[in-house]
């Protein structure tokens, strides 16, 4: 069963890193935050979120820690590492370049 992704390919890692820049969050919190900040436009599926978090852990861009939530439940909180912060910068730059390039192509079509 193919799930429709609401995200542009390759942007999930960047969104997760960006979300963690403010404060450490658990997986559910990350999904919620992305959904809220995007006014429900972007939904992160659990099926993509957890593999993505494992990928980020492997790269050493985030680190995970079991902590208690405010409702006193055990949850794994992810924290951005220094390497992750650097990676976020790289990905943001790349993303902006791509968006700018797309914008130039689209505006050219409009002018014609």
């Amino acid at each position: 069963m193919a799930r429709k992704s609401d995200l542009l390919p390759g942007t999930l890692d960047m969104l997760i890193l960006k979300t963690l820049q403010r404060a450490p969050l658990h997986g559910y919190g990350i999904a919620l935050q992305i959904k809220r900040l995007s006014d429900d436009v972007l939904t992160v599926e659990e099926g993509s979120l957890y593999p993505a978090l494992q990928r980020l852990l492997l790269q050493g861009w985030v680190k995970a820690e079991w902590k208690m939530t405010e409702t006193n439940r055990r949850a794994r909180f992810y924290t951005l590492t220094a390497a992750g912060r650097k990676q976020l910068g790289v990905e943001l730059t790349q993303f902006e370049q791509v968006i700018a390039a797309i914008g130039r192509v689209l505006s050219d079509v409009q002018d014609a």
Partner: peptide, 8 residues
């Protein structure tokens, strides 16, 4: 992972 997903 199981605990994490159950929590979610």
């Amino acid at each position: 992972l199981d605990e994490e997903m159950t929590f979610h």
